[in-house]
Computed example of a mutant assay.
Amino acid sequence: MLEKIRVVLVNTSHPGNIGGAARAMKNMGLKSLVLVDPKKYPHQDASSRAAGADDILENAQVVATLEEALAGCSVVLGTSARDRRIPWPLLDPREAADRCLHTWQADHTAEIALVFGREYAGLTNAELQRCQYHIHIPADPEFSSLNLATAVQVLTYEARMAWLKYTEQPTHMPEIEATGMLGTAPATHESLELFYQHLQQTLIEIDFLDPAKPRHLMARLRRIFGRSQLKKSEVNILRGILTETQKAARGEIIQRRGEHV
Results as ranks from 00 to 15, higher is better:
132 Q>H: 07
184 T>N: 08
220 R>G: 00
118 R>N: 09
199 L>D: 00
217 L>Q: 12
76 V>G: 04
255 Q>W: 07
221 L>K: 11
4 K>M: 05
239 R>H: 02
251 G>R: 15
12 T>Y: 09
145 S>M: 05
58 E>F: 10
168 E>V: 06
148 L>T: 06
155 L>P: 14
261 V>P: 11
113 A>C: 12
95 E>F: 01
240 G>Q: 05
24 A>R: 02
121 A>G: 11
134 H>E: 03
143 F>A: 10
61 Q>S: 14
232 K>P: 03
177 E>P: 13
13 S>I: 06
84 R>S: 03
72 G>E: 03
42 P>R: 10
74 S>E: 07
23 R>Y: 03
185 A>T: 00
144 S>T: 06
54 D>N: 12
142 E>C: 06
156 T>H: 13
44 Q>V: 12
23 R>N: 05
56 I>S: 08
238 L>F: 12
260 H>I: 12
240 G>E: 02
261 V>I: 07
135 I>C: 08
142 E>R: 15
168 E>K: 15
178 A>L: 00
77 L>S: 02
97 A>C: 03
213 K>H: 15
119 E>P: 11
213 K>F: 08
44 Q>L: 09
55 D>V: 07
198 H>I: 05
231 K>E: 08
17 N>A: 08
2 L>A: 01
39 K>F: 00
14 H>G: 10
119 E>D: 11
261 V>K: 14
206 I>Y: 02
91 L>W: 02
134 H>W: 11
235 V>C: 08
94 R>G: 07
183 G>L: 10
237 I>H: 04
247 K>F: 01
19 G>N: 03
70 L>C: 04
9 L>P: 13
196 Y>M: 01
31 K>R: 11
126 A>R: 14
232 K>F: 02
67 E>Q: 15
14 H>E: 15
85 R>Q: 13
77 L>I: 02
35 L>G: 14
